[in-house]
Design a protein around this nucleic acid. Sequence first.
DNA 1: TAAGATTGAGGTTTCAATCTTA
DNA 2: TAAGATTGAAACCTCAATCTTA
Lengths: 156, 156
Amino acid sequence: LSRYFLARYDGHVENGDLITNWGLVVEGFARVQRVLQADLEACELAPTWFEVLLRLVRTPGHRLPMTQLADEVLFSSGGFTKLADRIAEAGYVERIGCPSDRRVTWITLTDLGEKVISNALERHVVSLRSNVLEPLGEASLNQLGQHMRTLRDQHS
Amino acid sequence: LSRYFLARYDGHVENGDLITNWGLVVEGFARVQRVLQADLEACELAPTWFEVLLRLVRTPGHRLPMTQLADEVLFSSGGFTKLADRIAEAGYVERIGCPSDRRVTWITLTDLGEKVISNALERHVVSLRSNVLEPLGEASLNQLGQHMRTLRDQHS
DNA sequence: TAAGATTGAGGTTTCAATCTTA
DNA sequence: TAAGATTGAAACCTCAATCTTA
């Protein structure tokens, strides 16, 4: 293994640095997410439900095509159909057929769903402050966001 | 919703900035991971398998107690038992009873497992270079790693 | 009593096949 | 033909209960 940790590549960054830095991203993200999600479960809201409702409430009109939302939350088509079933059963979203293209069905936020996500966001912000902003500080948080934006834009 | 995006808190960071920055982390991480994992599947190696083998190959002696490794990869105890079953079935790891404390069983890397993870790491490094190092640059990658280390240490 | 590991039950997600509409 | 959505089967993970050893 030491071959991979010691080898240099084009005279600059070592493979070990690369693996270590990305490993820090993986671990740090996983551990923060675990804490944030535990706070969300105080709102009886599973992580996947939160992601779905959050994207709907941020969308003008509070509605999106099933396929598009599935792609945004990195779900398979079939998996998202069933997730939408469960969230709809709880009364947080509804399906509406798109009039202009009858293949697509929109998923829309109900009034109840909007209340639920607003309440959850209120708690989420408190949780983000203590678990992310406080340990990092404002300047580092902004740096972090910019770096991750660079990575996101590379793969969208 | 605009209430949460516009409100200020103790006169500094807006909630919207907080949500946006963390949202960038969530999205950026998810999209990069998706690409990295697609590359790993070219080695017939599921993401969880890679995490397990990677930690074993980096450990002196190539062995760890089940519980400790389960905790490191954020698995439940029962879930890790079954994951270890599958990886062992493929011949990449083996269970060995710990002689000094017969409650614990070590999970160890086989020769085949070491070959597999070494090969996967070789590909993984190439993938990390093009998907993470290249878009970010060395300085930003180090900054990113340090920030995520801060978050990780806050929750370990 | 408590810690490490396993098992079975239950819920969630993916994959492949299918149906409908463009 | 192709795209959007749904379905059933299989795989995976968690939770709670259980077993063994300290």
